[in-house]
């Protein structure tokens, strides 16, 4: 129960479900509009809005256990983020670094900080101005998924790009 609830709260998963739905329908060439497909929530975000960023770009990346290297899938997400951030320059950005619970508290604060820094450095290398970027580590203090096994830990090892003043 807890895990399912956590998953559906995860915007990446929502975006993924939405994209699959679009792909599936497109292949059948069904001329439905977005409202009929029930995609009002996901697809209708105003371009350039914080919701657009979270839903259509993806605000988070995930890491391997005790690792701070940016995985291939994360590079794709961050490249998309950089492109978007370079287009919409009105936002200041805070990158939150997080760790799973399989480490001790102080070490995980440091690990979360390192993940946030690695994410920041990737975005800077993709042209996002360093002056717009701040980082903060939450260590293992802010899990999004709350079960006690691997499926949750992998969701908690993350860096989340947040737009300040986004009001979300």
């Amino acid at each position: 129960m807890g895990r399912i609830a956590a998953l559906t709260r995860n915007p990446v998963m929502i975006a993924l479900v939405a994209m699959l739905a679009i792909a599936g329908c497109a292949s059948k060439k069904t001329p439905n509009n977005a409202a009929d497909l029930g995609l009002n929530g996901a697809g209708a975000a105003t371009p350039g809005s914080a919701k657009d960023f979270t839903v259509n770009i993806g605000d988070r990346i995930f890491f391997d256990t005790d690792s701070t290297s940016i995985r291939a899938d994360a590079q794709t997400t961050l490249s998309r983020q950089a492109q978007w951030l370079n287009q919409y320059k009105q936002y200041a950005i805070v990158i939150e670094g997080h760790a799973d619970e399989r480490g001790t508290r102080e070490y995980n604060l440091a690990l979360g900080a390192r993940r946030a820094a690695a994410t920041r450095d990737f975005l800077v290398a993709k042209g996002v101005s360093a002056s717009r970027l701040k980082t903060i580590s939450y260590g293992k203090e802010r899990p999004v998924a709350v079960c006690d096994d691997i499926s949750c830990w992998s969701q908690n090892r993350r860096a989340v790009t947040t737009l300040s003043g986004a009001g979300s």
Partner: peptide, 26 residues
């Protein structure tokens, strides 16, 4: 940057702790 993992020295005159560097190390 972030400071964390503090402890007192045995004479109580100092606090020892970690400081986050800009490169993400501590």
């Amino acid at each position: 940057g972030m400071t964390f993992a503090p402890r007192f020295s045995p004479d109580g005159q100092k606090v020892i702790m970690s400081l986050l560097r800009d490169d993400g190390n501590s």
